[in-house]
Amino acid sequence: MDSFIYTGLPARVVFGAGTTARLGAEADALGMTRPLVLTTPPQAADGEALAALLDGRAAGVFSGAAMHTPVSVTDAAMAVFERSGADGLIAIGGGSTIGLAKAIALRTDAPQIAVPTTYAGSEMTPIIGQTEDGVKTTRKTLKVLPETVIYDVDHTLSLPPVMSLTSGMNAVAHAVEALYAENANPVLSLMAEDGIAALVRALPAIAAGPDDRAARRDALYGAWLCAVCLGSGGVALHHKLCHVLGGSFDLPHAETHTVVLPHALAYNAPAVAPAMERLARATGSADPAGALYDLARAGGAPTALKDLGMPEDGIDKAVEITFKNPYWNPRPLERDAIRAIIRAAWQGNRPVC
């Protein structure tokens, strides 16, 4: 076995059904006396419900979280945080809300509790992405890692099937790249394969029956493992492309990951044979990139960037931004080949390894 380095991240996980009932106790354990609850506008009622569980201790509810964590939204939330005298953060939602909590924690070092309602995985990572003037930048620091994560299967039951699929594909992307990231290691590879397998098994079952609790449990478990892979592992071409596309064209996060993943994987496949063996087992297919594309298509998820609102003349712009500050990648980036996979993703073609 080759030498490797594995870093475990200091996060407490509470997993199961009905686990939100522990919110007050978990807030006490972190010394929160006036936590501010964060949500997106559609989940404002969920935020109010969480605030009610805190028996009058909540500093309030800020329901303005938005995709890609715009700095302007963080500024508005910071004003509420400071005015209310809050000393902690409770985020209920997906990557948008958890990203906002991270942005506030970065500025204040306030403790965080994350209550995910999707499979996005931001809650298990020390990574924060923020968008300003149409440019999304990321950084990695333990200051933004939530101290406690409450995974409650009950919160995922109302997630619509197509949203479940795109959110799950977003999670799968974290684990796929952990298999061949620069700091890949055998511990994360075990988690990645198990997480991908759980999601690939669960997502079609959720599409057939959104209230299938066993499938929802498997999906949330898989998403947790995939998120650990993202937090402790690394990223490559796929995540670089998604950050470029999301930040430059304001494309929806999970849907962009769903479209791009099969194409980025197909690009890297010739250079990552051991990872492809694990992915073949996890997906049950000798063509993992094609299998992931087929999974998305069969579930009614978008498979073309043009359907997400990206203009065709944005392809060259995306290529240029990608090459300005490229991530590490197992296969060297070739400009014409990268342009070709972005075009294939824009058109919605099935990838070819």
Rank of each mutant, 00 (worst) to 15 (best):
D250P: 00
A264D: 05
A318G: 12
R278F: 05
D336L: 03
E320M: 05
D336M: 00
D316V: 01
D316T: 00
Y327M: 07
A286G: 13
N325I: 06
R335H: 02
L265Q: 11
A301Y: 06
R278K: 14
L295A: 09
R339D: 01
M276T: 00
R335T: 11
A318F: 03
P274E: 03
E320T: 15
M276R: 03
R335Y: 06
D316F: 02
T283V: 09
L305Y: 06
L333S: 04
D313F: 04
V260L: 09
A264W: 04
T303D: 02
R297W: 05
M276P: 00
T256I: 00
P326K: 08
S285M: 03
G300E: 01
D307H: 14
A337P: 14
I338T: 13
A298E: 15
N329V: 00
V259D: 03
A304G: 08
T256H: 01
F323P: 12
A275N: 00
V272L: 00
L265C: 08
T283A: 14
L265T: 07
T322A: 08
A289V: 10
A337I: 09
M310Y: 04
D287N: 12
P311H: 01
G299L: 06
A296I: 07
L265N: 10
H253C: 13
A280N: 08
G314P: 00
N268P: 13
D307R: 13
A280K: 12
A271L: 02
L251P: 14
T322P: 14
G284A: 10
Y327S: 14
R331A: 02
A318K: 11
P252C: 08
H263N: 09
L261Q: 10
D307T: 14
N329R: 05
R297K: 15
G299S: 12
M310A: 08
A298L: 10
A296W: 10
P288G: 13
G290H: 05
K317W: 04
A280M: 11
F323Y: 15
T303Y: 07
D313Q: 12
D294W: 14
A289Q: 11
P262L: 04
P270E: 06
S248A: 15
L308E: 07
A298M: 04
E320F: 07
V319I: 13
P330N: 04
I338S: 06
D307I: 05
A264M: 00
A286N: 09
N329C: 12
A282D: 14
P274R: 01
P332F: 02
A271N: 08
P302D: 06
P311G: 03
T258F: 05
L279G: 02
D287G: 08
D307M: 08
G290L: 03
A280H: 11
A271Y: 03
G290I: 05
R281K: 15
A318Q: 09
T283P: 06
K317Y: 01
A254D: 07
Y267N: 13
L308S: 10
W328K: 11
A286S: 15
A275V: 12
D294R: 13
H263P: 05
T256A: 06
L305N: 07
L292F: 02
E334H: 03
W328C: 01
N325Y: 07
